[in-house]
C-alpha cells in the first residue's frame, strides 16, 4: 500500500504544479442559479445584443457587422463561447465581470482593458449596475457550456461507482495475491 501511495503521489505532483499557475482573477462570486442566468439573458438582450451575436443560441446582432466595424474599427465578436475562451471554469465569467465594471466615466476609459474598442455597455448610474454585470457574466458562462449542469450531475454517480469498483478490484487483487510465496 505504501508503494502505491508513493507511485500515485510521485505521478500527481506535476499536475498540482500546473494547477498553481493561474493569473490574477477578480475575487467576485458568480451566482449561476437559473434565476441569475435568466436575468443575465435579459441584460444581454438589452445591453449587448445590439452589437454581439450569440450564434449557438440563435441570437443575431441587431446592427450589421459592417456598421459596427465602421464605428468601432472591429467587428464585435460572437459571445456564445466568450466565457470559456477567456478562462477555465468560472474564470472567464469573472473576467467578463471585471471588464464590464472597470470603465471610468469621463473620459470613457477602461482601467483594466485600456485598449478596448467597446464603449461601456452598462451604465454605472444604474442602481443594479453590479448585479447586472454579474448576471450577464453568469449567462455567458451558462451559454458557453449549456450541458455543464448535466455533466456534474452525472459525474457524481459515475465517480461514486468508480470508487466502489476500484475498492472491489483492490480487495480482489489482495485476495488473489495472498497465497503467493514471498521468495522464489
Amino acid at each position: 500500500m505504501k508503494k502505491i501511495v508513493a507511485v500515485v503521489a510521485l505521478t500527481l505532483i506535476p499536475i498540482y504544479a500546473m494547477a498553481a499557475e493561474r493569473g490574477p482573477i477578480p475575487d467576485v462570486k458568480i451566482d449561476v442559479s437559473d434565476e441569475a442566468i435568466k436575468r443575465g439573458e435579459e441584460v444581454y438582450k438589452k445591453a449587448c445584443k445590439v452589437c454581439h451575436s450569440m450564434k449557438y443560441l440563435g441570437y443575431k446582432a441587431s446592427i450589421p457587422a459592417e456598421a459596427a466595424r465602421k464605428s468601432f474599427g472591429k467587428v464585435p465578436p460572437d459571445l456564445s463561447l466568450m466565457a470559456k475562451a477567456r478562462g477555465k471554469d468560472d474564470e472567464g465569467a469573472k473576467y467578463i465581470y471585471a471588464l464590464l465594471t472597470s470603465y471610468v466615466n469621463t473620459p470613457e476609459k477602461n482601467t483594466v482593458f485600456p485598449n478596448i474598442a467597446m464603449p461601456p455597455p452598462l451604465s454605472k448610474a444604474d442602481p443594479e449596475f453590479e448585479q447586472k454585470a454579474r448576471d450577464v457574466a453568469a449567462f455567458l458562462l451558462y451559454a458557453a457550456e449549456p450541458t455543464a449542469k448535466e455533466r456534474e450531475r452525472l459525474g457524481r454517480y459515475v465517480l461514486a461507482y468508480m470508487v466502489v469498483l476500484t475498492a472491489l478490484l483492490y480487495a480482489l487483487n489482495r485476495k488473489v495475491w495472498r497465497g503467493v510465496k514471498k521468495k522464489g
Partner: peptide, 17 residues
C-alpha cells in the same frame, strides 16, 4: 468461497458498469 463471492460481486459490478 470468499474469493468466489468477491470474484462474482466484482464481475457483476464491472458488467453493470
Amino acid at each position: 468461497s470468499r474469493r468466489d463471492f468477491l470474484t462474482v460481486t466484482t464481475s457483476a459490478v464491472g458488467a453493470v458498469g
